[in-house]
């Protein structure tokens, strides 16, 4: 009984304060890292191709996406067609993508929608670079969070020459193009 009597209100306040302080310190130092994911900032990406070769997964967890509010739905899409091909048609030999991962769908004359088959995409960024050079720059790379195993030290982040890899919160796991060559409004 005498032991209980020693634990007075001041001791309780001290204990509560210490608990609150350590909780805050944990959140500030280490707790916030939980719930953070690797992601690629497409506005810094220079299409170097390291995402294909440096991911611990094979094929890479980095995939191409098409931001449709920037896409021109072009008939002659040079993210899809090989610029120097003999014919500009949908023959496999005329496609830019080495794995034929871009699916061309007719919308209305003369507009086509370009969707990425992510099971085939290896994240080489060839289409991203071509779309930037010849189109509206609507193709971009992203880490697919359902594939990524979120390594403590992402091996692509180490290799990335443009420092495009960053950590994002789980609540906002993807980043978007903010410019391209077409205005986003």
């Amino acid at each position: 009984m005498s032991e209980l009597k020693k634990f007075n209100r001041r001791d309780f306040m001290r204990g509560a304060g210490a608990l609150a302080f350590s909780g805050a310190a944990y959140a500030a130092v280490g707790g916030s890292e939980e719930g953070m994911l690797w992601q690629l900032d497409p506005n810094k990406c220079t299409q170097c191709g390291q995402c294909t070769t440096h991911c611990v997964l094979n094929p890479s967890a980095v995939k191409c996406l098409n931001q449709f509010n920037i896409c021109g739905y072009c008939d002659l899409c040079f993210g899809y067609l090989m610029p120097k091909s003999r014919n500009w048609d949908t023959g496999a030999e005329n496609q830019l993508c080495p794995t034929s991962a871009i699916v061309r769908k007719y919308v209305e004359d003369p507009y086509y929608e370009y969707v990425i088959d992510e099971d085939r995409c290896i994240g080489c960024a060839k289409c991203v670079e071509a779309c930037l050079l010849f189109g509206n720059a609507s193709f971009y790379l992203q880490i697919r969070q359902d594939l990524c195993i979120n390594c403590n030290e992402c091996s692509i982040a180490w290799a990335c020459p443009s420092d495009a890899f960053t950590k994002v919160p789980v609540s906002e796991p993807y980043l978007y193009l903010t410019g391209g060559t077409a205005p986003v409004e």
């Binding site: 440096h54 080495p98 080489c124 060839k126 670079e129």
Partner: peptide
């Protein structure tokens, strides 16, 4: 050497540029 892209995944349009 670190792995590198093969020729199939390189976009070479330098002659066009």
């Amino acid at each position: 050497d670190p792995p590198r892209k093969g020729s199939n995944t390189n976009l070479d349009v330098s002659d066009i540029i």
